[in-house]
Amino acid sequence: MTPVLEIRDLSVDYGQGEGAVHAVSSVNLVLNRGEVLGLAGESGSGKSTLAYAMTRLLPPPGIITGGEVLHHGRDKPAPVDVLGLSPKQLRSFRWNDIAIVFQGAMNSLNPVSTVASQLEDIYRAHRPEMSRAQRTKRSAELLRLVGISADRLGSYPHQLSGGMRQRVMIAMALALDPEIIIMDEPTTALDVVMQRQILEQMMRLREELGFSVLFITHDISLLVEFSDRIAIMYAGRIVEQAASEDMYRASSHPYSKGLLGSFPALHGPRRPLTGIPGSPPDMRSVPSGCPFHPRCPSAFDVCEREIPVLEKLSGTNGDSSRSVACWLNTPSLSGHPGVGAT
């Protein structure tokens, strides 16, 4: 597998100086060509911040304080650091290479412009050589691709249902045939039936068009079903990464277990719903050591003092792509057998 996007040591702050909130701390993440990578966590865990930061769309007072976001372009010889692009290069990189399907379809579309104008905007900016007729033709094709009839081109967002608006957003994301699509809580505003329809359609399109997806949601059960790999974030750090299958069957981090326990499984054996006691930390005063320790059922003395590092896990299934940041997996410290196969 070849990487298409590599996030290295990315850190993001809100504000500067002493009052700065460290929303994302030294995150490493690799999105491979053609895969669906799920990113889960409770609200405030930094998952959306991460997504906005890597495209440099984070609003003030967000600041990227370190790291690299390397894009390995299809036909580019060397990877490009997105964080080092000039505004002009960044504009051309956006949507050409990374498109985003935003959360809350309600507000993502400009309420005073038609669907057509918002689709054609993309071509006017990125494909100035296209004629008006070509733009209209292509926009109609895009709508058909997501199952909307072309006569909706003249509609305004308020004339569309929530599901339709979300499909329009997807059509928009496909406009320039990007290599990467970020989906940020794409279906939270929709009912369960619509949610499935849209995600299934998205996966079909992915098979046809071959883009990679970074799928961000708080609903880990959706990730288990729709993604190849899952990364779990807590308090601005990645605490566990594994193939979905492994994550579902045998997650190692107590937080991942808790998160998986808070949703009913759609398929497979039934499990009791457990949930996680307590609430996510206030990012202005993150607990010392492992930020999860006050809520962790298996916390012991080290957890309070030191932050665990994300380390490759060996042993289970011989899968080297698993990694976890938990002291329980350092047997010399915990005295437990590290793997959470309970």
Partner: peptide, 12 residues
């Protein structure tokens, strides 16, 4: 256009 302000050493 989120500003990028790389700090020496970075955080851990």
């Amino acid at each position: 256009f989120t500003p990028v302000l790389r700090q020496e050493g970075g955080r851990s």
